[in-house]
């Protein structure tokens, strides 16, 4: 019973992971903005890969669970870091995000930091107010 449950779980995880990878790929293709594309790639793609790795661990009845879990940990630790680094670098290069009602908080903070000069650290704490109000 336990073995068949794990077999069902493995098939479900592998298929679900592949479906999440497909959803992430559609998001990378269709979303309007570099930052929202990063969103789709890093979240849906990482979840899909993590589910496939969990499916591998379940399909072998825990035989290679240690290696699969290590790969999963590495993936979950590095994918958000890489996504954050890419979006921050894109913002520094000057790629404009499509902003909603809350505006571009990072640009506002950097502008305030330049205006305040040496007291940039103090200004970045103050600038949360105007951004939230606007």
């Amino acid at each position: 019973m336990n073995g068949s449950l794990l077999a069902w779980l493995a098939s479900a995880l592998v298929l679900g992971g592949a479906a999440f990878c497909l959803i992430g790929a559609i998001g990378v293709l269709r979303l309007p903005d570099c930052y929202s594309r990063m969103h789709a790639a890093s979240k849906a793609g990482a979840l899909g890969a993590a589910m496939v790795l969990g499916g591998v661990a379940a399909a072998t009845s825990g035989e290679v669970a240690l290696e699969a879990m290590f790969a999963l940990l590495v993936l979950l630790a590095t994918a958000p870091l890489a996504a954050h680094a890419v979006s921050r670098a894109a913002h520094k290069v000057g790629v404009k995000p499509l902003t909603g009602a809350l505006g571009d908080a990072l640009a506002a903070r950097e502008a305030a930091g330049e205006a305040a000069g040496a007291r940039a650290a103090e200004a970045s704490g103050v600038v949360g107010g105007p951004v939230a109000k606007s």
Partner: peptide
């Protein structure tokens, strides 16, 4: 971003 997504897909 596309290369990042491709390598994530490669892991899977």
């Amino acid at each position: 971003v596309a290369i990042d997504a491709l390598t994530l897909l490669g892991v899977a």
